[in-house]
Simulated assay, not measured.
Amino acid sequence: MTAIGTTDLKRMFDAIAVSIEADRDRLCQLDGVIGDADHGIAMALGFGAVRDALASLDAATAEPTVLLNTAAKSFLNAVGASCGPLYATAFMRAASAVKGKANLEDADLIALLQAMAQGIKDRGKAEVGEKTMVDAWQPAAEAAAAAHAAGKSLPESLAAALAAAERGAEATKDMVAAKGRSSRLGERSLGHMDPGAASAVTVIAAMRNSLA
């Protein structure tokens, strides 16, 4: 059993910001094929803003819900692109999922991951198979929940989530985009990984590495 507090979540967001910044150029290249070539920039702006906003948060007194709602607000304020509302909704849903808890146990972290995935799915009105970040997030959340239900540890559950996200992102190469700007390309979007799914893998990997 793991106890994750506000300090740990703060460290998690720091790790995500570093990972996304390191991956920024690759994400922009992926987006350049089927979008506006700015996805890496938008994600780096968003998570950089989250890191800066959380730096002034008192981890000793703020509960995880406060931290997650702060993350939602700062990401949305920083990012005008489509990923802004998606990740803001993810963090707000996560905040609701762990409301009233000072420390999060394994089941709470799984619930947080599921809430994020569902928030992204609801806000984007997307389903698996439509070549979006949902193709990585939903399998990740389902895999984490299944692993946890089977008695796996948090590190094992997060590893299962990452593996599922990687498979989901890879699968987007064989999909025709049905949502967003890339949907205008139709069949020409085939053969290319969705940048939102690719960045989701980067985010989930950073979460796994930080929390496990």
Rank of each mutant, 00 (worst) to 15 (best):
A37T: 03
A60L: 11
A78L: 03
A44C: 09
G80T: 07
G80L: 10
A140R: 03
A62V: 06
L109V: 13
Y87G: 08
F47D: 02
V134K: 08
N77Q: 12
V128K: 13
A102H: 06
Q114E: 13
D58S: 12
Q114Y: 03
T89I: 09
Q114W: 01
E105M: 10
E127L: 14
N69H: 12
C83L: 12
D36E: 14
N103H: 13
I41M: 12
D135Y: 09
V50E: 03
Q118M: 11
E127F: 07
R123W: 02
K121I: 00
E130G: 06
M92Y: 12
M92W: 10
L68N: 01
G100Y: 03
A107R: 06
L104Y: 08
G129Q: 05
L68H: 08
K73L: 12
A90S: 14
D38I: 08
D36F: 12
E127A: 14
A88R: 12
A72M: 00
E105H: 12
K121T: 11
S96P: 00
F47P: 11
G100T: 05
A44K: 14
F75A: 00
T70E: 05
E142R: 14
A60W: 04
D106Y: 00
T65Q: 15
A115S: 12
F47L: 08
G48E: 09
D122F: 07
D36M: 06
A140M: 09
A94K: 04
W137A: 13
A141L: 06
F47V: 06
A141T: 05
P64I: 09
P64H: 11
V134H: 08
R93K: 14
A126C: 05
G40N: 03
G100F: 08
A37S: 15
G40T: 07
G46P: 00
E63G: 15
G40I: 10
S56N: 07
A107I: 03
Q114C: 09
L112V: 01
V134M: 09
S82G: 03
L86A: 09
S96H: 12
I120Q: 01
L112P: 04
Q118C: 04
A49D: 01
L54M: 05
V66A: 15
H39S: 02
D135L: 11
V50F: 01
K131C: 10
W137K: 02
K131T: 04
E130F: 02
A102S: 13
V66Q: 13
D36L: 11
A94F: 05
A97P: 07
L68Y: 10
A72C: 01
L45T: 03
D135E: 09
A78K: 06
A60C: 00
V128W: 02
A90E: 06
A107V: 10
D58K: 00
P64S: 03
E127V: 09
T70W: 02
M133T: 08
V128M: 13
P85M: 04
V134G: 07
P64C: 07
A53V: 04
Q138K: 14
D36I: 09
K131N: 11
A141D: 08
A71S: 11
E127Q: 14
A60G: 11
D52F: 05
H39Q: 01
G129I: 07
